[in-house]
Design a protein around this nucleic acid. Structure first.
Lengths: 153, 153
DNA sequence: TGGGATTATATGGGCGTCAATGGGTATATG
DNA sequence: CATATACCCATTGACGCCCATATAATCCCA
């Protein structure tokens, strides 16, 4: 499986370390399995993360913008200065920078939500509420979750 | 990681020295890890910096502008004539020339913002405001930030 | 297929190393 | 000679690296 799926609840220890769920670690390319990138989610008070490979993609994309345009600076600033890289130790743990923990109201526990090509880290209660709200929105808007799930391509 | 990412807040000591963040030092080519170039940012009251290798890329960018346009001369003059090189000492510190500090209103602390292929040095408060403004522009006026971050290759 | 043995995962803690910072002194440069 | 800068060493706190343990998952063989 090369996608981030399922959800996990892990503890943050005294040193601020938290285990990246094992199944998430396995999604990272074997080459760069000891480093991930983290950044503030744009739409939710959560942290998003993924392997460093995506960062290089983003860099390439930005590099193709007009070098002297305002967009270039805006993207460059909003993305590169906001992204942090953190190392994964031998046991599979990493540190969440204080600023990101603050942004997501995370203190002693972190909920990991698989999102396919990336994952989210939530304060557990907020994360739960968010998934419930999401599901409710889907059902209410009659997007028919069941249809999406059962429909053949 | 071979990109300048994340942000750091470092102090300027009595002698005017400031540490280049360790992760930034590691981006510099092992060959020339004791020298960087600095110049005034054209669009913001900040200092931009990078390894000396990046000079060629800047030259290429400028060369791609219309040779007979006013922009060509302006960019060429504004950037090349203003570039200074500074040495990095054994502890990873360097001196910011007074003229550049003045330009960026930097006094006792410097905020380092990763910008991918280069980095910026800001007076901390101004830097914070700039990243907020940048993000707001992208979120309000264009919806493309999310795309940039999540779009698959 | 049951059940003990083995392995993996999440978690805790010790300790050495490194990064950021401060300061003293030699050296250069005008 | 005076000021600035290169070079050296010291301090402190954070982080990386290592080892330990408990619980959960898996295996393996009778």
């Amino acid at each position: 499986m090369d996608l981030f799926v399922s959800k996990y609840l892990n503890k943050i220890d005294k040193k601020g370390r938290v285990s990246l769920p094992s199944s998430f670690r396995n999604v990272l390319p074997k080459a760069n399995r000891n480093e991930i990138i983290l950044y503030k989610s744009i739409k939710t008070p959560s942290i998003e993360g993924c392997g460093v490979g995506r960062l290089k993609e983003i860099a390439k994309r930005i590099n193709n913008l007009d070098f002297f345009s305002e967009d270039y600076d805006d993207f460059s600033t909003s993305i590169f200065s906001e992204i942090v890289t953190t190392k994964i130790d031998k046991e599979g743990r990493f540190l969440i920078p204080d600023e990101l923990k603050l942004y997501a109201s995370i203190k002693t526990e972190a909920a990991f939500l698989g999102q396919g090509y990336y994952f989210q880290i939530w304060e557990p209660k907020k994360g739960l509420k968010n998934t419930e709200d999401s599901r409710r929105r889907l059902l209410n808007e009659k997007k028919s979750l069941r249809m999406m799930l059962t429909q053949q391509k």
